[in-house]
């Protein structure tokens, strides 16, 4: 009961985190690993869209997310945050970019700040999986073609017309049934009417 709730001490990442540890082996050991990740984070903040191997991208993404969320939470007058930014961004002008460009961009965002997308690779090759890591709201043309909701695309026009025709045929069927039902009801009533006098 006395223990502090960990989730309240550390800001929660808004991305899924891989449950297993990634080795990212390096001759310099853990230090070399962190150096690699620092380079990647710097590159991401600088270019806003980079293509690299999946493991490295996914690992660096977590650090970048954390850096941006800290920056948003504490602002540029907070000494520890400034130290973190200074450590992770190798080019110092990017510290200004982080606080003056990215913080205003992401202040009111409810989701994560980066996208991780699979990059195409040639079929039947044994290359390592490549991905594209990008900051949201970057100035480049979008990678994903979100056109599936465009009703004017030819496949959607065709499917829509097919759906309309199917519905029309169903309505006709229902109308047909109702029409028949009414006539049968009428017949029953007539029968009853004819039956009644015979009973009486």
């Amino acid at each position: 009961m006395n223990q502090a709730d960990v989730t309240k001490l550390v800001s929660k990442l808004r991305i899924p985190v891989h449950p297993e540890r990634r080795k990212l082996r390096n001759p310099k050991g853990p230090e070399g690993r962190i150096d690699k990740l620092r380079k990647t984070v710097t590159g991401l903040i600088k270019y806003e869209r980079i293509e690299l191997n999946y493991n490295r991208a996914d690992e660096a993404r977590q650090y970048a997310e954390r850096l941006i969320s800290e920056a948003i939470q504490h602002g540029d007058c907070h000494k520890p945050t400034m130290d973190i930014a200074d450590y992770w961004l190798l080019e110092k002008e990017l510290v200004h970019k982080l606080f003056k460009v990215l913080v205003p961009r992401y202040e009111n965002l409810n989701s994560c700040y980066t996208n991780l997308l699979k990059a195409p690779r040639p079929q039947n090759t044994r290359n390592i999986e490549k991905v594209v890591l990008e900051l949201k709201g970057n100035p480049y043309p979008p990678l994903r073609n979100k056109q599936s909701n465009n009703k004017l695309l030819i496949q959607n026009v065709l499917l829509d017309a097919a759906k309309y025709e199917y519905r029309q045929s169903k309505y006709a069927e229902i109308a047909d049934k109702i029409g028949k039902g009414e006539t049968t009801v009428d017949n029953n009533q007539k029968e009853k009417v004819t039956e009644k006098p015979s009973q009486s």
């Binding site: 695309l153 030819i154 496949q155 065709l158 499917l159 017309a161 097919a162 025709e165």
Partner: peptide, 21 residues
């Protein structure tokens, strides 16, 4: 006949609806 532009990926079931029609 019925056709789709190259690069349009349509599931075989959806395409069968179009061909039936």
């Amino acid at each position: 006949g019925v056709a789709l532009p190259a690069g349009v990926i349509l599931d075989h079931f959806a395409f069968s609806i179009l061909t039936e029609r």
